[in-house]
């Protein structure tokens, strides 16, 4: 199962390097990592997804906690979180297939960002599952390039 860790860290130089270093030397594989500043400019949030089968999540969080710049770690409960990811995909199209691709995009509520002679660039936001489903449908047309942000997540409710 995929785990999403929401990690609050001090917004200081070197913090990302420390976290990345910790993951690599302890043999933890990161599936995705997204970093951005929070409502408090001194604090950044890292959203890290990893595979729980591969790594005992408890060791990961305990080791993370030992980093002085890590303030708080939440292992997000998928039932109680909303998560999103953004992807940009460039699909090869010809005049014949363009319509079909645009139709798929519409169903997924993806935006067309750029139309070229031989390609179309779309932007899609959603859960990882949705993005992967979209990708599967576009693949037969020839996916030229994908850029994904990695998952970000937030807990439901006021808290």
């Amino acid at each position: 199962m995929k785990h999403t860790l929401s990690v609050l860290v001090e917004n200081k130089p070197g913090v990302l390097a420390r976290i990345a270093g910790l993951f690599s030397r302890r043999g933890f594989n990161i599936d995705s990592l997204a970093v951005g500043v929070t409502e408090d400019p001194n604090v950044s949030r890292m959203t890290i997804t990893l595979d729980q089968q591969e790594h005992p999540i408890e060791q990961v969080t305990k080791q993370l906690h030992k980093l002085i710049n890590v303030i708080k770690i939440t292992d997000l409960d998928p039932e109680r979180t909303v998560s999103r990811e953004l992807a940009l995909m460039k699909v090869s199209t010809d005049p014949k297939s363009r319509g079909e691709v645009m139709q798929i995009a519409e169903i997924f509520r993806a935006n067309i960002l750029d139309v070229g002679k031989k390609s179309l660039t779309v932007e899609i936001t959603g859960t990882t599952a949705k993005i992967e489903a979209f990708e599967q449908l576009l693949r037969p047309h020839g996916l030229l390039e994908i850029v994904r942000t990695g998952r970000i997540a937030i807990e439901r409710g006021e808290k």
Partner: peptide
């Protein structure tokens, strides 16, 4: 040196 010693310090400062 902060990079080199990153895995072997409790913490470091530049």
């Amino acid at each position: 040196i902060t990079g080199i010693t990153e895995p072997i310090v409790k913490h470091s400062y530049l």
